[in-house]
Design a binder for these strands. Structure first.
Lengths: 227, 227
DNA sequence: GATGCTTATATGTCTGCACATATTAGCTCT
DNA sequence: AGAGCTAATATGTGCAGACATATAAGCATC
């Protein structure tokens, strides 16, 4: 009855009913441990989870306070495209449309933290769901930090190969809405300017930037939070 | 040197270098505790974090295994719109364009889990950044579960009032790209059909659905992960 | 072979204690 | 008053041990 989840729930309840108002300090871990009749570690676990959820803020010596304007934290699962398609009950396929070495435009090089003029791979892939265009993927790939030789990307999707080869790297993701450019319109089979959901991801390994990818999703695509 | 973060890093390293291949089991907490010369609780903490990050899967009795196709977890901060604007160094403003009671369309009622025919508030707000249109917000609001009386939403943004009143409720968020409809085009000052980034959120309290909101962001808007 | 029970095992969680560390509040000195 | 030092305090993390619980694997039975 006084596990850490019960304590988290009780603390949350007190915050909800304004027992502990927004912006106010709450009792110390020790005081709560005494009140709930449990060890301090248990209270600590509960409060740590609430801090991670953005409900409270914790500082050493200062204590724990209820945040004034809670920032909702949304968590998204970003699976490999094949799994995403299969999760919709459709059959995944893909076609490698282009692959060549080239010097990326300056903004791309900068964003990847590479010297201007370095040659990268450029790949264009179209992912299909039940044979219909699903995502148009364009990608800059830094061959210098990847295991050699590279596989045949016409047979293995870059998207999936990278995940298994360059596991668990850091990176950032951005979402935006953009009108389809000429190429995207042609490849996805839509009119130019149509609203597309665009995902841009940068991925890093310890020894340098790995890849920058742009995914333009066919109309109707949605991203949804888990939970 | 053998804190839980060090252990997490070491485990991650071994997974990266394929010391422990994808899909393979890793040693038990107890074995690792012996190897690293620390308590099992410390290993537990490290592995728990990795499980939360989607790097390993843990099951009682079965043990811990490296995930085969890691699912990237992206975490987004969804702040109050005012803070979002101010974070860009701009001045936030808003105008309440409309507010009336109405019976929502059936899909809306269903999504909120309400009986068809229930009357809700409908609000239309335009948020401004430095005086220019930033977000067009349309919202269904369930007055039945809110503290009464409602404030003057021309003076206090619904967006912000709800956060402070109905704290920490459950909900889901969806992102998509849509062409601007006639009203959005007019209010945001863009051409019809222009690609807009759209956020749709449903929010629940214990005693029922609170609100369903659609935010259509002016062109150029991006959502970015927080590391 | 299929089904159901038992048991061993790895993780999940808790306790009580300890020390580390950041940070604030108060004091002292100029 | 202001600057700088000191001490108190709340959280962060660690350890050793214990019990709880889910569940895979083996065994017995039908």
């Amino acid at each position: 009855m006084n596990g850490w989840e019960a304590i988290r729930a009780e603390v949350l309840r007190r915050i909800r009913v304004r027992d502990w108002p927004l912006g106010a300090m709450i009792p110390s871990e020790e005081a709560l441990a005494v009140e709930f009749g449990c060890a301090r570690a248990t209270v600590n676990r509960a409060l740590r989870e609430l801090a991670q959820a953005g409900v409270v803020e914790r500082k050493r010596r200062a204590g724990t306070r209820v945040v004034r304007l809670p920032v909702r934290k949304a968590t998204l699962d970003i699976p490999v495209i094949r799994l995403e398609v299969e999760a919709r009950g459709q059959v995944h396929g893909f076609r490698l449309l282009a692959m060549r070495e080239a010097v990326p435009p300056v903004p791309v090089a900068l964003r990847l933290g590479l010297a201007v003029g370095v040659r990268l791979w450029w790949l264009e892939t179209l992912h299909l769901a039940d044979g219909r265009p699903f995502v148009h993927e364009t990608r800059w790939l830094n061959g210098a930090v990847l295991p050699q030789p590279l596989p045949d990307f016409a047979a293995v999707s870059v998207n999936e190969w990278l995940v298994t080869q360059v596991s668990y790297a850091a990176g950032d993701i951005a979402f935006s809405a953009e009108g389809a450019n000429a190429r995207e319109a042609e490849v996805l089979g839509v009119a130019g300017g149509v609203a597309l959901f665009v995902t841009e991801r940068t991925t890093w390994a310890q020894d340098g930037a790995i890849t920058l990818v742009r995914l333009a999703h066919a109309p109707g695509y949605k991203v949804q939070t888990v939970v």
